[in-house]
């Protein structure tokens, strides 16, 4: 097997020492290697934030777009060239906050994307404001009276929308994370992997140690097809019990099935059917 180093590049990550991202990056590379992929077969699409920088620190195609918009950009790219293994990698603020509407729509649309959400429950790049997944009451400079409302529950939301693959990983459990990413790539539709990670600079409560205490594996007897059971595991987050592993698997067909023209290769290279177009125009006579 090729080594994970084929995905290494020359750039030094601009993350804080001890950041959870440092544990996620090699887990992602390892999953790509385990799947036998070459860098030119993989496209990473990200938005903006500390997590969204991750694709810059590996060798692959990269489209680092706008804050919140990784999912629509990835949707366009995947439909345009379904040969590409398209991985969306961004943070909780980007995917669940700025891109919240796209998150809902992408799950319903079900394009074959693997979505990795680095979830550190805080805005890191803008220095410590509350994110959609921040614990209720979390005090920040921007939320001096505490983060309002309960944290957004991405896994419960995805299960309610009948997402095809819903999982939780953790930066503190890198081997399990690699396996989850591989399983997500195997899934023929949108796969959501929410990845818990500490923000060592701005989230002083949810530390490496805190996650060790609050994360536990999905029970071995859990039925992935049982939506009610999956929802119960997802709702456990309300008591700060975070089940790691695959919570739910659905079976909706991916959107690509609807587009026979999207059979592979570079779509722009497919010739224009001038004869058909001439007939279309002539029909207006």
């Amino acid at each position: 097997m090729a080594k994970a180093t084929i995905f290494d590049n020359h750039l030094e990550p601009a993350w804080c020492p001890g950041c959870g991202n440092f544990a996620i990056l090699p887990a992602v590379k390892q999953a790509l290697v385990n799947r036998g992929l070459a860098p030119s077969e993989v496209l990473f699409v990200s938005g903006i934030g500390q997590a969204a920088k991750a694709p810059h620190y590996l060798r692959a195609h990269v489209f680092n777009g706008l804050h919140g918009r990784a999912l629509p950009a990835a949707t366009g790219a995947k439909l345009a060239n379904p040969d590409l293994e398209v991985i969306v990698e961004s943070g909780d603020g980007c995917i669940y906050g700025e891109g919240g509407n796209h998150f809902l729509a992408a799950i319903r649309r079900n394009v074959n994307l693997t979505v990795l959400v680095h979830n550190n429950q805080v805005y890191g790049l803008t220095k410590g404001q509350a994110s959609p997944t921040s614990a209720a009451g979390m005090i920040t400079k921007a939320q001096p009276h505490g983060s309002s409302g309960p944290p957004f529950n991405p896994l419960a939301t995805a299960i309610v929308l009948d997402a095809g693959f819903v999982a939780r990983g953790s930066a503190g459990r890198p081997e399990e994370l690699t396996a989850l990413i591989e399983a997500g790539m195997d899934h023929p539709g949108l796969a959501l992997i929410d990845i818990l990670q500490p923000c060592v600079s701005f989230n002083k409560r949810q530390t490496w140690a805190w996650y060790r205490e609050h994360c536990e594996p999905v029970p071995t007897d859990h039925d992935h097809g049982d939506r009610d059971a999956a929802l119960r595991l997802a709702f456990a987050a309300e008591e700060e019990r975070f089940f790691c592993g695959i919570l739910y698997r659905g079976a909706r067909p991916p959107l690509e099935n609807r587009f026979p023209m999207s059979a592979g290769g570079i779509l722009g290279r497919v010739p224009v059917n001038g004869g058909a177009l001439a007939e279309i125009i002539a029909a207006h006579g």
Binding site: G65, A73, T75, G76, A77, A80, N81, I266
Partner: peptide
């Protein structure tokens, strides 16, 4: 798309990938 923001970002993503 779900909104115009998604529409334009999808189009940019598709064009980046050769459509």
């Amino acid at each position: 798309a779900e909104d115009e923001i998604a529409a334009v970002n999808m189009a940019v993503g598709a064009s980046y990938a050769g459509a």
